[in-house]
Amino acid sequence: MNSTKITIASTPSVPTVVRGASADSVRWAREAARAFTDSLIPATAPATADTFVLVVSELATNALRHGGGRYTLELSATTDALTAAVSDPDPAPPRERTPDLDAGSGGFGWHMVRRLTTELTVTPGPGSGKTIHARLQR
């Protein structure tokens, strides 16, 4: 008898969209990303899930600080990749800046996101804003 293994990706039972406009919403974004990765079949490797949560946290934080004070996060997955799309009202693309090693005012997030993701794109919209699509291999 010939047996074939079939893998079915489940639909996460948690919301895959988070809207934020406060510092607390970054925590919600992290929690949603963790619940999202935990619900996937086949399971996401723990290190990949941790990296995905970190990327989501950095993108949400940057949207609040530099992107107009609010964001919409959409999470999606295929059998090969995890994607976080973060939209904010500011059309300006992210810019790298030198990390502040003395005063602790930041500058590490975008560098981290660039290094941790497999693919990173910035597209116009919705409206006059932008959306950052961060993809990680599963």
Rank of each mutant, 00 (worst) to 15 (best):
Thr4Cys: 00
Ile6Met: 05
Ile8Tyr: 08
Ala9Cys: 03
Ala9Lys: 07
Thr11Leu: 07
Thr11Asn: 03
Thr11Ser: 03
Val14Glu: 06
Val14Trp: 06
Thr16Pro: 00
Arg19Met: 00
Arg19Gly: 00
Gly20Cys: 02
Ala21Thr: 11
Ala21Tyr: 09
Ser22Asp: 11
Asp24Gln: 14
Asp24Pro: 00
Ser25Gly: 01
Val26Ala: 02
Arg27His: 13
Trp28Pro: 00
Trp28Arg: 13
Trp28Ser: 13
Trp28Tyr: 09
Ala29Cys: 13
Ala29Tyr: 09
Arg30Ala: 11
Ala33Phe: 05
Ala33Ser: 14
Ala35Ser: 11
Thr37His: 06
Asp38Gln: 14
Leu40Asn: 06
Thr44Arg: 06
Thr44Leu: 13
Pro46Thr: 09
Thr48Met: 03
Asp50Ser: 15
Thr51Met: 05
Thr51Asn: 05
Phe52Ala: 03
Phe52Gln: 02
Val53Trp: 03
Val53Ser: 01
Leu54Met: 06
Leu54Arg: 09
Leu54Ala: 10
Val55Gln: 05
Val55Ser: 03
Ser57His: 10
Leu59Asn: 04
Ala60Gly: 02
Asn62Thr: 14
Leu64Val: 14
Arg65Leu: 12
Arg65Cys: 06
Gly68Thr: 03
Gly69Glu: 09
Gly69Arg: 10
Arg70Met: 06
Leu73Met: 12
Leu75Gly: 03
Leu75Asp: 02
Ser76Glu: 12
Ser76Cys: 04
Ser76Asn: 11
Ala77Gly: 10
Thr78Ile: 04
Thr79Asn: 05
Thr79His: 15
Thr79Leu: 12
Ala84Ile: 09
Ala84Val: 12
Ala84Lys: 12
Val86Ser: 06
Val86Gly: 05
Val86Pro: 02
Val86Gln: 12
Asp88Ile: 07
Asp88Tyr: 08
Pro89Ser: 11
Pro89Met: 13
Pro91Trp: 13
Ala92His: 12
Pro93Leu: 04
Pro93Phe: 10
Pro94Asp: 00
Arg95Glu: 10
Arg97Leu: 01
Thr98Arg: 15
Pro99Val: 11
Asp100Cys: 15
Asp100Gly: 11
Leu101Ser: 08
Asp102Asn: 14
Asp102Phe: 15
Ala103Ser: 08
Ser105Asn: 11
Gly106Glu: 07
Gly106Gln: 13
Gly106Ala: 12
Gly107Pro: 01
Phe108Gln: 02
Gly109Asn: 12
Gly109Gln: 07
Trp110Glu: 01
Trp110Pro: 00
Trp110Ile: 03
Met112Pro: 00
Val113Phe: 06
Val113Met: 01
Arg114Glu: 12
Arg115His: 14
Leu116Glu: 02
Thr117Asn: 07
Thr117Val: 15
Thr118Val: 00
Glu119Tyr: 11
Leu120Arg: 08
Thr121Tyr: 01
Val122Met: 03
Val122Gly: 01
Pro124Cys: 07
Pro124Thr: 14
Pro126Arg: 11
Pro126Met: 07
Gly127Arg: 15
Ser128Phe: 08
Gly129Leu: 08
Gly129Ile: 10
Gly129Ser: 10
Thr131Val: 04
Thr131Asn: 02
His133Gln: 06
Ala134Asn: 04
Ala134Phe: 01
Leu136Cys: 00
